[in-house]
Design a protein around this nucleic acid. Structure first.
Lengths: 241, 241
DNA sequence: ACCTGAACACCGTTCAAGT
DNA sequence: ACCTGAACACCGTTCAAGT
């Protein structure tokens, strides 16, 4: 909101008397690489076709030859980043629980590395190998744990949705401007504890400070609670039969 | 992306030779009501100052007298909607578990009713009475369950973050254009199950269909698993002495 | 005091024109 | 074929001017 823009200057459009780009300089690959660079360097607000074109020393409208629209570019980029970030890195060990936790951590880290696209990564289905491999891996872990198909199918979804949505929220928080972020964090630590005891007895009586919404510990706790719940179910099944 | 815009036409700006708005027609209250109307009726894309001004038969820039910027308007609106949606509706019963589940459901429904602001509702701290009351209520439930302060503080955060981020994701899915939504849902039900058995044995061998990302059952399952985990902790404490 | 008009610096996207 | 320029229909926001 109103922070300094990179662009502009005063000279002729896009950097003075630049000459025309050599034929076939642009391609999906080249554009995706530039897109990753711009997104990581300048953030969500700055991720525009004009900024991207500038990075490539090209004209904004040239990109339309290679991608139908911005949405197509983003979806493609999401898959590309995923593949490079944890494509084929997951290895099964002899502990299904550790494996699921490792997977959760990979995904979580990936979101924090590319907060710009967090929301889209969480909600869209790309139908591409990395996505397939993730689901396959989680299903395998749950199978090894001893869940049957119905339970595994539901849990893989609960687990996946919680991982992705929590990661997206946390990543989004990181992408917020630092001022509002600090104000929010402080609110949880201080403001909330000064509320009148008659209307908010529990809040007022708290001995420990409230954890802030963006606290990284929350993610690990949530994952562990879900895994505990699976383990309980597994034990229950063992006792039954 | 490219669907019909409400605005425009060809006549003079903002509806022909309209005359000036009577003095003091505008106020925070009036603007917020119009904002809710526009947001629910036309969705996120259409939620602009120009559309809002049109609804009010006012000039877009008039709104700046009453709100510093769009961000301030949205934050204020979020709190307003929350207060009207479940302000003071929560009543403690004799089951802390039911109470937490009811709270989760209220919040979930609220997000689905206003998907436009789902993301902002999930991540921002408004520091207003409805938010205070929600935290107070959840803390009270956990206290009644038998958790101590440290545990309650962490769990209230895990629980709240999961509720809000899952709700935001689901709401965002509902705000997607129907085409991509249908394609995604079908992908999970069909495409995923036709993958080659040699690379994806677990997926290929599934007897039950994969649940789609947006399936409403997921939310309830996630909540129940977390509550199970609290109950287990409570039992553990009781056993310890 | 409150509302409006003109203007600025941006967006994504289309389409005809240059090389 | 591939890149560019001009143009269109928007954005949020500022600030001087009308009533």
């Amino acid at each position: 909101m109103g922070e300094a823009r990179t662009g502009g200057g005063k000279g002729a459009a896009a950097g003075g008397g630049r000459r025309r780009l050599a034929r076939d300089t642009l391609s999906r690959r080249v554009i995706l690489d530039a897109a990753e660079k711009v997104a990581s360097r300048d953030g969500l607000e700055a991720f525009t076709f004009q900024a991207l074109a500038k990075e490539l020393h090209a004209h904004p409208t040239s990109l339309y030859r290679h991608f139908r629209d911005k949405d197509e570019l983003i979806l493609e980029l999401i898959d590309d980043l995923r593949a490079r970030s944890y494509g084929g890195q997951l290895q099964a060990t002899d502990s299904w629980r550790d494996d699921l936790r490792t997977q959760a951590r990979y995904i979580h880290e990936h979101y924090l590395r590319y907060p710009v696209f967090a929301w889209q990564m969480a909600a869209r289905t790309t139908r591409r190998p990395t996505e397939f491999a993730n689901v396959e891996f989680a299903l395998d872990c749950l199978h090894r744990a001893g869940l049957d198909d119905d339970e595994a199918v539901m849990f893989v979804r609960v687990f996946g949705n919680v991982i992705r949505s929590l990661s997206a929220m946390e990543a989004g928080l990181h992408a917020l401007d630092p001022d509002s972020r600090d104000r929010d964090t402080l609110a949880w630590e201080l403001e909330y504890r000064r509320l009148p005891a008659d209307t908010y007895p529990r809040l007022a009586g708290l001995t420990a400070p409230l954890t802030a919404i963006g606290d990284p510990k929350i993610f690990d706790h949530a994952i562990d609670m879900l895994l505990d719940s699976v383990e309980a179910r597994v034990r229950e099944k063992a006792a039954e039969g």
